[in-house]
């Protein structure tokens, strides 16, 4: 038996919005540690690695590890039937061919449940080694969304150049070119508004803006995003999943393969 109850159900709705445009289907691997999902997009350019920690749920029961194969568009549609302030419970029997979602209103005067068929998925996992990245850039998630959106006007790719002076995002195309430079924040009252660069080595890499724009769908989960880069390895973009109190409930990480010279 698997059962997980999340009082701040809107977090699960936001998690689904952050992955449904990138992935068609994926397995939720449920264990005593929590619910994990790792899947690549169909072209194998980007990967999502997502964790919802068991102690982030108000109730969490997982008698034995199970893998729930899910059509993510279907799950997203069902979660749209939950109100933003609903409590969401996910339930699946061992060896079941369906998963149940229960939505309770805060006053418990409206309870709905939806059963969804599970899929048999042949999932392919990638081993991602723990990496010491040459640069880790932390910035407001809204700022990163804006940069990716604005530079998409100019081209398909962004060059991210991280040096000790700050970070420069550049794009060029038929109509011209654009650059956005962010300096490290000197004094910031609010931590979530800071730009912080932790750099061991300067790095310049090129990435597809189309995929970065998919990743920014996770911005509602977190006020900050971190970009971790090293030469000639995929970019890692991480949004921490925090509840209203700011406690960590897990993360959404995206990996994106760089573009290289032909």
């Amino acid at each position: 038996m698997f059962e997980a109850r999340l009082v701040e159900g809107s977090l699960l709705k936001k998690v689904m919005e952050s992955i449904k445009d990138l992935l068609n289907e994926a397995s939720w691997d449920c264990s005593g540690n929590g619910m994990c999902l790792q899947a690549m997009d169909s072209s194998h350019v980007a990967l999502v690695s997502l964790m919802l920690k068991s102690d982030g749920f108000e109730n969490y029961r997982c008698d034995r590890s199970i893998s729930l194969g899910i059509n993510l568009a279907s799950m997203s549609k069902i979660l749209k039937c939950a109100s933003n302030d609903d409590i969401i419970t996910i339930r699946a029997e061992d060896d079941a061919d369906a998963i149940t979602f229960m939505f309770e209103s805060p006053k418990q005067d409206r309870v709905s449940d939806y059963e969804m068929k599970l899929m048999n998925l042949d999932t392919e996992h990638l081993g991602i080694p723990d990496t010491e990245y040459a640069c880790v850039i932390k910035m407001p998630s809204g700022e990163f969304s804006r940069i990716c959106r604005d530079l998409s006007v100019l081209g398909d790719s962004v060059i991210i150049c991280c040096t000790k002076d700050g970070v420069r995002f550049s794009a060029k195309g038929d109509l011209g070119n654009g650059n956005i430079k962010l300096a490290q924040s000197a004094n910031v009252d609010k931590e979530e508004e800071a730009v912080v660069v932790d750099m061991r080595e300067a790095v310049t890499l090129t990435f597809s803006l189309r995929y970065l724009n998919f990743f920014t769908k996770a911005a509602p989960l977190s006020s900050q995003v971190s970009l971790s880069m090293s030469e000639d390895v995929p970019l890692m973009v991480e949004y921490k999943i925090n509840d209203k109190e700011g406690d960590s409930k897990g993360y959404v990480r995206y990996y994106l393969a760089p573009k290289i010279e032909d």
Binding site: M40, H44, T206, P234, A257, D262
Partner: peptide, 13 residues
């Protein structure tokens, strides 16, 4: 520029 894929960097498990 050429788009690489993740399997050029990470091994399948």
């Amino acid at each position: 520029m050429e788009q690489t894929v993740l399997t050029q960097f990470y091994l399948r498990q």
